[in-house]
Simulated scan of single mutants.
Amino acid sequence: MLLLELPNEILARIVTFHDTASPFDVGLLEKPKSALGPRETSDGIRLMSVPAGSNRQNALKNLSLTCRLIRAVALPVLFKHAVLHPLLLSDFLAFLKEHSLAHYVLSVVVHVSGHYNHIHPAWWARLLNEVPATRFSVIAPPEVFAELASIHSWSNDAWAFDMPVQVLRFDQSLEAARTKIDYDDLPNFLVGRPWECMVYNEGSSLSAYTTYEFFLRRTPSLLTALHFNSSAAGDALFANLLHFDFIAIFPFYNHVDEVLKCIRKMKRLRRLFVKLCPEPGSTAFDDEMEVAGGALDVHDPWNECETSWMLIAHTVLFLTVEGELQVLHMDDVKVEGLRRNLETALNDRLHERWRYLEQGSGIWHRSLGAGQWEVRE
């Protein structure tokens, strides 16, 4: 029997073997790169597929080009995770409508390279209204996030950090994804949906360590801006979050303290994920040391990291009393040289109300009472 003679159900099953998780999410723990966004080409349709990455993704794209029948079967899988530029939104939505794909899109990554608040209705509101994806990610420079949130950017020291882009990711329920935003009464971007999960990857602060009195530099960060602007929308966002992930590479401890002040407002938070060091095997530290030409004391980033752990422990204890936090995940235990010090530091401060059930896991669970521990994530 020829391939095209197979029933559509079997063809669909074959296509699913090339299905993958979003390649964007796979690299989320790395230093953000502009390359994660769409390529600047004249072909708008290309800009709407998932970012190239694995052989399986490329195989799925190639499979969709074989014939019309296979393409029709493959498109819903191929566009589960879409990437686009705000200026191509109309083309993107027209393409989804033409092929009846909108309800297949599970996640959208938007690469915002500049300021687009002049677009009406707002590109993000239009996207959320017409594509009921449950995951919404934005790759943009720090000042663009501040503009989206309608707050002052607090980025006078941005030059010292060299953070061209950062990543903000939100998750919402399927029910929330189906609600409509009123264009005539546009809410703040941060509360455009009742977001339940938030991930913020700030990137690396290593270049700032090469500047004079680096500890006085203020990190270009949406969370810093929300903290100092006392944003009502930011507070409403924080109050609704159930999961929060903070990812950075060697942030200053005083900046981590600003981030933690935002986290203390997340009273409904059940899971907190923190990553302050590069991935094991990453060359980020060596790369930036080479660029700095040796003008960086290698002890400074590690000292800032260790001080940050103490601050994190205090915030976890605060949310133990004032909030609903159940799980703390410290991802830096993956770094072999840090594991013992990190586990010891957190255990010493959390042992009365939290339990570290598995060495090397980086996961602490809150006590539910005598001899009982919360183990859900």
Rank of each mutant, 00 (worst) to 15 (best):
S34D: 06
L4P: 04
P164C: 04
D348M: 08
N341S: 15
A35Q: 12
K33N: 10
P141W: 06
I312W: 01
A160W: 02
T307D: 15
R56A: 11
T320F: 01
F318R: 02
F189E: 06
T344V: 15
T283V: 13
A140V: 02
G114R: 13
K334F: 00
F170V: 05
L89S: 04
L89Y: 05
Q57W: 12
V83E: 02
E40P: 03
S137R: 05
T307K: 15
T134K: 01
V108C: 13
D245L: 00
E306L: 13
Q326T: 05
L242F: 04
A146M: 04
P132Q: 00
G369N: 07
H103M: 11
V50L: 09
S367Q: 03
A133R: 01
R270I: 01
M48Q: 13
A94S: 14
R169M: 09
A122I: 00
P141V: 00
Q372K: 14
L174K: 15
L342D: 05
N117R: 14
I312S: 01
A176E: 11
S42T: 13
R71Y: 06
E175Y: 12
G371E: 08
V375L: 06
A233P: 10
V112T: 11
S361Q: 07
S153Y: 05
L260M: 13
T211D: 10
E336G: 01
V73C: 05
V112S: 10
L338C: 08
F17N: 13
Y212W: 11
Y200P: 02
L84Q: 02
F246W: 13
K261P: 03
A133H: 05
L4C: 12
E358M: 09
R178M: 08
V316N: 03
D171T: 07
P76W: 00
G281N: 08
G369T: 11
H299I: 04
G53N: 13
N254R: 14
P132N: 01
L6W: 11
H18Y: 15
L311V: 00
N254F: 10
A94I: 03
L11G: 07
A133W: 00
F252W: 08
V256M: 15
L342E: 07
M1A: 14
R353K: 15
R217T: 09
G323P: 03
L276G: 06
D332Q: 02
S282N: 06
E304R: 03
K31C: 11
A176F: 01
F95G: 04
E290I: 10
G323C: 00
L75R: 05
W159K: 13
E324G: 00
L186Q: 12
V165T: 13
W373A: 08
R340K: 14
W154N: 12
N62L: 11
G293W: 02
M266Y: 05
F161H: 08
D286V: 07
L317M: 10
R135A: 01
E377R: 10
E130Y: 02
A125C: 07
S22T: 06
Q166S: 12
C197Y: 15
A160L: 06
I139C: 01
A239G: 13
E5V: 07
V73G: 02
N58L: 11
E143A: 01
E306H: 08
L106R: 14
F318T: 09
I10V: 14
G323K: 02
D257P: 03
S49Y: 08
V77K: 06
